[in-house]
Amino acid sequence: MKLTPHSREWYARLARELGGYRHPWTRVLDGPDPELTFDALLAERLGPGVRVLEAGCGHGPDAARFGAQTARWVAYDRQPELLALARDNAPHAEFCLWDGRGAVPDALRGPFDLIVSRRGPTGVIGHLPAVAAPGGRFLYVGPTLEVPQVPERLVAVGWTIHGEWRVSVRAWTPRWEDWVTRCEWMGEEARQEDWETRATARGLPYQEERYVVLAGAE
């Protein structure tokens, strides 16, 4: 049965078959991974006194990689199958099942010095006043060069964008099957004529894009 991309059932299959929230297609980049910008901004804001809330943590790769560098790393996700993997991958972190709707659970109220979302839900922005410590920061990375709801929602809660980065790197999908999977993931149409007219011995070129935002309450 074909599952709707990004549905609960679809994420459950990713957890079961891929062991987490992972891109299920092969790609080759011509330059540095565009998410390295997010990594660098995150790493320089961590420290033994920093309390972090992560929205949409998936199987917990960031909690596993960065959590030990903080005073507290708390994360949530709406998908129980991914949270089960996250608890195994990052036993030092705290995890909560939540879909970002309604009142913030007590376990997620913090306050937190840094709220992060790596390609995760933007709905957390509406909860920033409830979870952020004075002087708190919000760091986000999205899968396209423009994610309009991010600046719109930040304005709505009175937060200011301190920096925006738009990073684009040429990438290649070596097989037609990879291109189909990538387009499905991104909500785009995979057209056979594009493959037939544009693909080379390396595969089909496209741009791997990221939109990174750093914001604060002042």
Rank of each mutant, 00 (worst) to 15 (best):
Q69C: 11
D178K: 08
R175W: 01
W10S: 03
A90Q: 05
P174V: 13
E209I: 00
W10G: 00
P91V: 14
E54S: 05
H162T: 10
G216P: 01
D33N: 14
P105K: 00
R137A: 06
D99L: 07
V212E: 09
G187Y: 08
V124I: 15
D178Q: 08
I161C: 09
A215G: 08
R191K: 13
G102C: 06
D39T: 09
V180Q: 08
W73A: 07
E218F: 13
T197G: 01
G49W: 01
I115P: 02
L36N: 11
V28K: 00
T4A: 10
P129M: 08
E35A: 11
P34D: 06
P80L: 04
A190F: 13
H6S: 11
G126T: 09
R13K: 12
A133K: 07
M1P: 02
P91F: 03
E17Y: 11
G142T: 10
M186H: 13
V74D: 13
A40K: 02
E146V: 15
L14D: 03
A171S: 10
L154P: 04
R153A: 15
R166K: 10
V212N: 05
P48N: 08
A84S: 10
A15P: 00
P61L: 07
A12H: 06
E35H: 11
C96S: 11
D113K: 03
A40P: 04
W73E: 10
E164M: 12
L85C: 01
L214R: 09
L214W: 03
A130D: 14
P151M: 12
V104I: 08
V131Y: 14
G142Q: 06
A103P: 09
P134Y: 12
G102N: 02
P34F: 14
G158M: 07
C57E: 06
D62C: 07
H6T: 12
Q69N: 12
W98S: 06
